[in-house]
Design a protein around this nucleic acid. Structure first.
Length: 110
DNA sequence: TTTCTGACAACAA
DNA sequence: ATTGTTGCCAGAA
């Protein structure tokens, strides 16, 4: 059904689920895609709640600097990085290497 | 019920 | 360049 009935969180989850394997996106980019660019913070909070769901690849969402700000919320402190590297994303010092190369724009959906 | 606290990001000084 | 403020929303104490 139309997304107008979905909560902000649900819209975030919908987009995050669409992130292709081996790609990443940012909180602000998702927020902007939802039409609320100032709600980047909410995207992060939505992810915090995403642990209740199983199909949310939260490790593919990073901040606009390509920094793994949410890694501390995973089971281990390095799980997020390992998951990304397992998908071909190179992470150095909590920062994504070739960030522009792996960045996936939800608006572009490519 | 009110208050505080967040996986961010843009802007002001 | 760095620091502080503001916007946004939901859940916990």
């Amino acid at each position: 059904m139309n997304s107008i009935n979905e909560s902000f969180f649900d819209k975030v989850y919908t987009i995050v689920r669409k992130i292709p394997h081996g790609r990443v996106t940012t909180y602000g980019l998702i927020a902007k895609c939802l039409g609320t660019p100032k709600s980047a913070r909410m995207v992060g909070y939505a992810m915090n709640s995403s642990h209740k769901f199983s199909d949310i690849p939260a490790h593919r969402v990073v901040n606009r600097n390509g920094l793994l700000t949410g890694k501390h919320h995973f089971f281990g402190s390095s799980l997020m990085q390992e998951l990304l590297e397992n998908e071909g994303v190179i992470v150095i010092d909590n920062k994504i290497k070739n960030f522009n190369d792996v960045l996936w724009d939800p608006s572009t959906r490519n």
